[in-house]
Design a protein around this nucleic acid. Structure first.
Lengths: 187, 187
DNA sequence: GACATAAATCTACTATAGTGGATTCATTAG
DNA sequence: CTAATGAATCCACTATAGTAGATTTATGTC
């Protein structure tokens, strides 16, 4: 499932499932959430993309936080993560590309493959990985890494385990793309 | 913070914080998320409630899932949960009322106080509490509880620890409101 | 100070989210 | 079968989300 295109249908399925599990009709959910019946119907058929305001009302009527509502959506992923289904995101301006190899809510490990184009760099704020432990493994090319206040030069095959959260920069100063894999372990 | 009214401003603050931490301008985020600059600006000022489709684009540009994006919003709560700030939700058709005493993302315990009006009942599907352990404590009135295939009568002061997930019904057959506290422990 | 440029906000528009009530469809009882 | 009722969808409308480009504001350099 593409992470962006089909989210409205994933929301539709989840809302219908939560409502069904409680034995509520569309009218009952509409009343509890203070939302129109027509809108619940349209959302459940994937015909509209609900605003954040509306989603909070619905999640609250189900007794869920937004985080738990969305984790229920996202955790429906298969244990098997196929290449063709792995979400890929490309930064339009730099060509930086990210493939999500493994990311399942509740599972304590995430794996992401990154391709950093020649003469590009990307910064990662320390606050991005509070509560996680991170390691990277260079799978092709060379990578300069700023972490813990120092620059490190990594060659193909090298692996680096990060220390405490701090601001990080990944830089590719060569004229070839660099590819590395990020492992995030959650506490 | 009311759980519904002010969510757009919480989203605004979080997007601005994530963008700032990455050193991106509004134009850069707009480019990476394939969203108009004007819309990013409006969202960050809390002047619009973004649709789910738009939020997914933004979260993906930040490298976050929707669940992690919202958990970052919701975990900003104080360690001290004051009565006046505890979210209260009332079912418009039954008068069933729920007060969230303690619910912090990442904290392994949730506490909810429920008031069940006379001659009302509420059902809770087993799927609602998969992965959690639950107990209830009757703080006033009497409660009939269907769980694990059997009915149980609980009086004031009684406490019941639930077994494996199964469908549950809380029923108040008396002519007085019943009040009970729900403890959810997360694994 | 002047000037250039980056960043954020405004403007006028189109697209669609959201509503209340009407209509259609499905189910149940007699 | 008919009639009643519950549930879901349709309809016509208003409100607002979302856009591209223009304008204003903020910042940096000389």
């Amino acid at each position: 499932m593409s992470p962006i295109v089909d989210f409205d249908s994933a929301i539709a399925d989840r809302i219908r499932a939560e409502r069904s599990a409680r034995g509520w009709s569309i009218a009952e959910l509409a009343g509890k959430a203070s939302v129109s019946k027509a809108m619940i119907s349209r959302i459940e058929r994937g015909e509209a993309s609900p605003t954040a305001t509306l989603l909070v009302k619905i999640a609250t009527a189900f007794g869920l936080t937004m985080a738990s509502f969305f984790s229920r959506i996202e955790e429906k992923q298969q244990r098997l993560s196929r290449l063709t289904n792995q979400p890929v995101w490309t930064d339009p301006e730099t060509g930086y590309r990210r493939r999500q190899i493994l990311a399942q809510s509740g599972f304590p490990l995430e794996i992401t493959e990154v391709e950093l184009p020649p003469c590009q760099e990307v910064a990662l704020p320390g606050s991005s990985y509070t509560f996680v432990r991170q390691a990277i493994w260079v799978t092709s090319g060379t990578l300069r890494l700023f972490e813990g206040g120092d620059w490190h030069d990594l060659a193909e095959g090298d692996c680096f385990a990060f220390g405490p959260p701090s601001d990080v920069i990944f830089a590719n100063g060569s004229d070839q793309p660099c590819r590395y894999t990020v492992f995030l372990g959650r506490m």
